[in-house]
Design a binder for these strands. Structure first.
Length: 443
RNA sequence: GGCCUCAUCGUCUAGCCUGGUCUAGGACAGCGGGUUUUCAUCCCGCUAACUUGGGUUCGAAUCCCAAUGAGGUCACCA
């Protein structure tokens, strides 16, 4: 039987880190088996929908290479009446009932959830539809992520709403109808769904069909608070990380290892490699914390792994608009090992595009520069030529390399720390280098 | 508060299912050193963990129970 998984976000905003991870695991689980990955938009709550969110979700998923095989929108499917029909069928079969109670909102009545709805035995024929939870039963399933059986006493499960009075289904109905209808074999979702699983199990059972396997992923905890990552407190959107200068493959690799690990503890995975090695046995039980240290390391790894040409489009975004590809291609190899974020490029390589300003040199520095100026004017303009001549004069004056090159570096790049000096001067050219040396001397 | 889940270095984790090879392995971070005209890369080394208490057993990080701690959830939201 071919594996079919789905990622089912509601279109309420950008894709957050946890969503990316869920999508990635669902994708890898399906693709490892040559199966199908489904993208399903869960927009049955009209009030919460954000315009453009669906398109943004699709775009970012594709940026990470998570291409879906099938695409559905619940509000579209709703029009055919499938959810309503399913709910009515459950009423007919005695597994659900009509209810005309006023809708409750979250926590308005404290923690005293009404388990058995007052309408369940009124035999109403219209209104919202709720699940008739059986008494004194054990509801259980095997969680394929946690690799263990989890169960509830049905007496602790409440009569959940399946169809709202606006005729739209709730998640409990729509997602289950769809998973059955779409022949989803593995439901992979966040841990926050675990408490409502008994409801879904009942709905799945009453609806009939092949029971999908269910697995719950760990929550990603905030590094600061230790609580579940929240959009309000933490920066969690994938788009933000990309803007900050992280490579998509680095983010993806980092996130892949937050809650999953292979037996051999390998860490570097491209998407195809992850698919190849993916195994549900590697799912973690404990909640990981969202510390960014390793993400930076991953980014450096991928930065260095990419060829200069592959890096070009990313670097171009960080460079001045009029910078030529030819120039950028010369600079990239010099900065590649020196940046961990793409956005570091600007500070490190700025001197290639604009002359350093506000640099003040000591008298000692200037005596170094005077000598350097003479050498630079006449030496061969090659790495060999520049370095041997410069070194010769340092030796002739019994100076130390450190101080001499620091002064020259400061004059040409405007900073104490920079990409390799000789290579940088070669890129700048003899004239520009000399101009900068002269400028340093004049201050 | 009820229900559910979880518990190995600061962090991500391997080991746990199928007890002994674990004086607990790797990676990131930190620290120290080497290479390097700066910085970085690269290389070498060091610091650092089985939550606690009971059991079971010749033997427990590994199995069982409890306590403690952590997280989640309790809507006509997903």
């Amino acid at each position: 039987m071919v594996v079919r998984t789905r990622f089912a976000p509601s279109p309420t905003g950008f894709l957050h880190i946890g969503g990316l991870r869920t999508a990635l695991y669902a994708y890898a689980l399906a693709k490892h088996d040559g199966g199908d990955f489904i993208l399903r938009i869960e927009d049955t709550d009209q009030k919460r929908e954000v315009a453009g969110a669906t398109e943004a979700l699709q775009k970012i998923l594709q940026k990470f290479g998570l291409q879906w095989d099938e695409f559905y929108i619940q509000s579209e499917r709703q029009k055919s009446g499938i959810y309503q029909k399913a709910a009515e069928k459950l009423v007919e079969e005695g597994h659900a009932f009509y209810c005309q109670c006023e809708a409750r909102n979250a926590h308005t009545d404290g923690y005293s959830t009404v388990l058995r709805d007052p309408c369940r035995d009124k035999n109403l024929t219209s209104g919202a539809i709720k699940l008739r939870v059986p008494d004194n039963e054990t509801i259980s399933y095997h969680d394929f992520a946690h690799k263990k059986d989890i169960s509830w006493d049905s007496n602790t499960v409440y009569d959940a709403t399946l169809l709202k009075s606006d005729r739209f289904p709730t998640y409990a109905l729509a997602a289950m109808v769809d998973d059955l209808d779409m022949k989803v074999t593995h439901i992979l979702r966040g841990h926050d769904w675990l408490p409502s699983t008994p409801i879904h199990l009942l709905v799945l059972k009453y609806l009939g069909g092949d029971m999908p396997k269910i697995g719950h992923l760990t929550d990603i905890l905030s590094a600061e608070t230790g609580k579940k990552l929240s959009k309000r407190r933490d920066s969690v959107f994938c788009e933000q990380f990309l803007e900050q200068g992280y490579l998509p493959e680095a983010l993806l690799n980092f996130v892949a290892l937050l809650g999953w690990a292979p037996k051999d503890n390998r860490e570097l995975f491209t998407l195809p490699e992850l698919v190849e090695h993916f195994d549900a046995k590697g799912f973690q039980d404990a909640n990981p914390r969202f510390f960014l240290d390793k993400l930076k390391w991953f980014n450096g790894q991928y930065l260095r792994k990419k060829s200069d040409e592959e890096l070009l489009p990313f670097i171009r975004q960080q460079a001045p608009k009029d910078a030529s590809d030819k120039l950028l291609l010369q600079i990239i190899p010099l900065v590649k090992t020196r940046i961990s974020l793409l956005s570091d490029f600007a500070t490190l390589a700025n001197f290639f595009f604009t002359r350093p300003v506000g640099v003040t040199l000591s008298g000692e520095d200037k005596s170094y520069l005077k000598v350097a100026e003479v050498v630079l004017k006449t030496c061969d303009w090659t790495k060999e030529g520049i370095e041997t001549k410069l070194l010769e004069s340092v030796k002739a004056n019994s100076w130390k390399n450190m101080g001499f090159f620091a002064a020259l570096r400061l004059a040409t790049t405007g900073a104490k720390v920079s990409p390799p000096l000789t290579e940088s001067m070669l890129i700048l050219g003899r004239d520009e280098t000399l101009t900068r040396v002269a400028q340093g001397l004049s201050r």
